[in-house]
């Protein structure tokens, strides 16, 4: 798939994209930018699909989505130390959808904040992360509802193994004046072995009435009933564990548009398991 490289249209670490008849496919290659970061603005009703590769550790990414605009981010974290540092501000009816496949190595301390400032704006976040080899990864993803009828979903799935530590945290905050908003947080981590550790701590803050909010988290080993079921059909236990874990991580593939990238992520996930 041909994508427009952001480096060709960025000036002074800023880029503004206007509405076109069709979705614009872009790529942000971290190797093309210095560490000052980047501000991306989507003008009214713009519709952009952004592939994010080679993201530099703590690279500040500031996103502004104006009225009716829509941004889909497909993020691929494969290198060493790729902590995310993303802030998004959304206007009326704006929408951000983010899919991140994290197969990076090294420690990670990511912070993502999505501010739903305009009525009817929405944010969807989905992450699949593999942590291993004593790496310590912390993903802090917050969705702040500052206007009425806003909608936020944060789904985080992970596997930790080989003495890795993985933490999912973040706040879903429905502030005063955000009536009829809905928010949901979900965090699930499979702890693969006894030397690995994990923490899932979704927090809800609700300052307004007439809203819907839910959160759920589970941290644990592979479900023994699932293991029994698969092994009772002849699969060896090791393979059953692998299948269950892949089933946990692979749905992230559905968020990626490019078949080659899907294939790459799929192969990498299988290799790690």
């Amino acid at each position: 798939m041909d994508r427009l490289s952001l480096k060709n249209i960025v000036k002074n670490n800023q880029v503004s994209i206007s509405k076109t008849d069709e979705m614009i496919y872009c790529v942000l290659d971290g190797n093309d930018f210095n560490n000052k970061g980047l501000k991306i603005t989507l003008e009214d009703d713009a519709n952009v699909n952004l592939l994010l590769v080679n993201y530099k550790n703590n690279f500040p990414l500031d996103i502004e989505l104006k009225e009716g605009s829509s941004l889909k981010i497909e993020g691929l974290l494969l290198d060493e130390q790729q902590s995310l540092n993303i802030t998004a501000n959304l206007g009326k009816f704006a929408k951000i959808t983010s899919y991140f496949a994290d197969l990076s190595s090294g420690d990670n301390k990511s912070k993502v904040v999505m501010n739903l400032n305009g009525e009817n704006s929405s944010a969807f976040w989905k992450l699949a992360s593999v942590t291993e080899k004593k790496d310590k990864k912390v993903f802090d993803v917050s969705i702040i509802h500052n206007a009425s009828k806003t909608y936020g979903v944060s789904d985080n799935y992970g596997v930790t193994k080989d003495e890795g530590f993985l933490s999912f945290s973040g706040i879903s905050h429905i502030k005063n004046g955000s009536k009829f908003s809905k928010t949901r947080q979900n965090a699930k981590i499979i702890v693969f072995d006894k030397l690995s550790n994990a923490k899932a701590q979704p927090i809800l803050k609700i300052d307004e009435n007439e809203v819907e909010a839910s959160h759920g988290a589970s941290v644990g080993t592979v479900n023994e009933d699932q293991i029994f079921y698969l092994t009772s059909r002849g699969l060896k236990e090791e393979m059953a564990r692998q299948l269950i874990t892949l089933g946990y991580l692979k749905p992230i593939l559905n968020g990626f548009s490019d078949e080659e990238i899907k294939e790459e992520i799929s192969t990498l996930i299988e290799g790690r398991m």
Partner: peptide
């Protein structure tokens, strides 16, 4: 093991089969 018994030719059709998301 359970899988070895299955490969010998035993099968258990379960009352409440487990759900395995993503597989």
């Amino acid at each position: 093991s359970v899988d070895e018994r299955a490969r010998l030719g035993l099968f258990l059709g379960m009352q409440s089969p487990a759900e395995v998301p993503g597989v």
